[in-house]
Amino acid sequence: MNIETRVLQGDFDEVRTRRVVDAHSGLEGACLPILHALQEAFGYVDKRAIPIVADALNISKAEVHGVISFYHDFRGRPAGRHVLKLCRAEACQAMGVDALVDRLANLHGCNAGETSADGALTLDNVYCLGNCALSPAALIDGEPVGRLNETRLDAIVARCRGAVQ
């Protein structure tokens, strides 16, 4: 599931967008499946896709925009080369995730909800990954990591950065 790792140009591809939309528009309640498919294909949901989705589903552009903005998952712009989703919920708090968040910010220059300046890593807060007995837990590019500690975290960040150089 390396949805988020693709190198993104941010170039809008109308033909491909239409193809993705058409592939899912026949489903019952097609809006979320379409948005997920767009995000999987392009790494984010370009605002220029909104009228195409609205058209295919016969709903207003405002409605599509409303859906995109309601859900935490959908991005309006490309993410970094890697995405770390770090669980901030209680079981992970009990095992010290807050200290890891500080370390990410202070040592690695990664703040929640942002992409690091070198474009290597986007850090997202999530609330529970269902790995609460092996907390602190995260997903790195969709793959689970448990029992995070400083060493494991530093290694992940290094790997994300190393992949570029």
Binding site: C87, A89, E90, A91, C92, Y127, C128, G130, N131, C132, A133
Partner: peptide, 12 residues
Amino acid sequence: DEGDSGTFADRM
């Protein structure tokens, strides 16, 4: 949706 933190039985 198993949103409750501390729960993972549905997932498992």
